[in-house]
Amino acid sequence: MMTTIKKCTLTDVHDLQTISVETFTETFKEHNLPEHLNAYLEKAYNLKQLQQEIANPSSQFFLVYFNEDIAGYLKVNTDEAQTEAMDDDSFEVERIYVKRKFQKHGLGKLLLNMAFELALEQKKKKIWLGVWEDNENAIAFYQKKGFVQTGAHSFFMGEDEQTDLIMTKTLQ
């Protein structure tokens, strides 16, 4: 088993779009109306939107490969790129997704550990993320990694308002 992580550049935008749509659909398809899911996918993962996000110096994307296959990805934000107003000491994990067939291989842990390293390199004191309130596996994973719920915010899937828990971990 060979695992590698590669920072995304604009040349990776098609691969990023493919893995984004695939993992988001796998995760949320059975819990949402198709029209709400499709509206979200079109808005969040169109090529122009992803190109803008990759080009933002306060955001970074990373692809994780399992052998030769793209197995998942990570998106992190600082400063004004964070999806919630946070202080300058905060570092956001906006997206962390692994394809179902590659789960249980430690890839989520690998990506999250990378986020911890990036946050510490940038002298951040807190790392935070939003997770859907009904995603029990993800919530348990983050709790095991030392995150605690510190708030909640609305997340819209098309016109359907859902709740994401905001979970935060203080870094040493």
Score class of each variant (00 low, 15 high):
79 D>W: 00
131 V>I: 05
97 Y>K: 12
114 M>K: 15
133 E>A: 14
76 V>N: 07
72 G>F: 03
144 K>V: 01
131 V>Y: 04
84 E>T: 12
99 K>G: 01
134 D>S: 14
52 Q>W: 00
42 E>S: 14
104 K>H: 14
87 D>P: 06
158 G>P: 10
36 H>Y: 11
51 Q>D: 01
100 R>A: 07
84 E>F: 00
157 M>Y: 05
55 A>I: 05
119 A>E: 01
86 M>N: 01
125 K>V: 06
75 K>Q: 09
67 N>H: 13
119 A>F: 06
99 K>I: 00
104 K>S: 09
132 W>Q: 09
70 I>H: 08
83 T>H: 07
130 G>C: 06
60 Q>Y: 01
122 Q>L: 13
39 A>M: 03
81 A>T: 03
47 L>G: 09
79 D>N: 15
52 Q>A: 13
135 N>I: 05
136 E>A: 13
159 E>W: 00
159 E>H: 06
97 Y>T: 07
45 Y>R: 08
113 N>C: 07
58 S>R: 05
93 V>W: 01
159 E>I: 05
160 D>T: 14
86 M>A: 10
152 A>R: 15
159 E>Y: 01
62 F>H: 14
135 N>H: 07
59 S>M: 10
149 Q>V: 15
131 V>W: 00
146 G>S: 08
89 D>L: 13
69 D>V: 11
150 T>A: 12
58 S>K: 12
153 H>N: 12
156 F>T: 03
78 T>A: 03
104 K>R: 15
74 L>T: 06
154 S>C: 06
89 D>G: 09
63 L>V: 13
110 L>N: 08
91 F>P: 02
101 K>R: 08
113 N>G: 05
87 D>H: 10
163 T>M: 14
149 Q>G: 12
47 L>N: 10
141 F>H: 12
78 T>Y: 00
118 L>P: 00
125 K>M: 07
69 D>G: 07
153 H>Q: 11
44 A>R: 07
130 G>W: 07
133 E>I: 13
110 L>A: 05
37 L>F: 05
124 K>D: 00
158 G>V: 10
147 F>T: 12
74 L>A: 09
123 K>A: 09
55 A>D: 11
151 G>D: 04
113 N>M: 10
106 G>P: 06
67 N>W: 00
163 T>E: 10
53 E>C: 14
98 V>M: 06
37 L>P: 13
113 N>V: 02
49 Q>L: 03
82 Q>R: 12
122 Q>S: 13
50 L>V: 10
102 F>G: 02
133 E>F: 11
94 E>G: 04
52 Q>I: 03
122 Q>N: 13
65 Y>D: 09
122 Q>K: 15
160 D>E: 14
59 S>A: 14
146 G>W: 12
101 K>V: 01
116 F>I: 05
140 A>E: 04
110 L>E: 04
41 L>E: 07
150 T>K: 12
145 K>C: 08
134 D>T: 14
86 M>Q: 12
102 F>E: 01
66 F>R: 15
127 I>H: 02
148 V>H: 15
149 Q>I: 14
38 N>G: 03
112 L>V: 05
36 H>N: 15
87 D>C: 08
95 R>I: 01
129 L>R: 08
54 I>M: 11
123 K>L: 02
39 A>Q: 12
44 A>P: 11
129 L>N: 02
36 H>M: 04
150 T>R: 09
138 A>K: 08
36 H>Q: 13
76 V>I: 14
106 G>N: 10
158 G>N: 09
57 P>W: 01
